[in-house]
């Protein structure tokens, strides 16, 4: 049996982010102000012609919820893993 050091095992991300691409107006707030650089702006278009964000590095998401707090179009939210978003979340 091969022993793996605990630190070598990939850590499960602390949170995840959900994007409603069709509601997005491509302002870029979420990608710019995500503290860990999870999001990037897509070169693709949504049906209204805006560039929505994409998840560039899901593993970095802490579920802090700041993206959802910034989004003026209510098109994105982040949540901590292991539980459902609650009304008290960011």
């Amino acid at each position: 049996m091969v022993e793996t050091k605990k630190s070598a095992a990939p850590k499960a991300p602390k949170g995840h982010v959900v994007i409603n691409t069709e509601r997005c107006k491509g302002c870029g707030f979420c990608a710019q102000f995500c503290p860990t650089g999870v999001l990037a702006m897509s070169k693709g278009f949504n049906l209204k012609g805006y560039h929505p964000p994409i998840i560039a590095d899901a593993a970095k998401c802490s579920g802090c919820g700041l993206c959802g707090m910034y989004c003026p179009d209510f098109a994105i939210y982040g949540v901590k893993n292991g539980r459902k978003p609650e009304s008290g979340d960011l």
């Binding site: 959900v18 107006k25 302002c27 707030f29 959802g68 707090m69 003026p72 179009d73």
Partner: peptide, 29 residues
């Protein structure tokens, strides 16, 4: 990508969405 449970939605009249605000308008924030 779905958006069934954005925590802000329970505070909004979702039947009125999408709102009229322009891209990058600060009112939504």
């Amino acid at each position: 990508m779905t958006c069934d449970s954005n925590p802000v939605e329970e505070w909004l009249r979702m039947d009125r969405m999408p709102h009229i605000w322009c891209p990058g308008c600060g009112i939504g924030t």
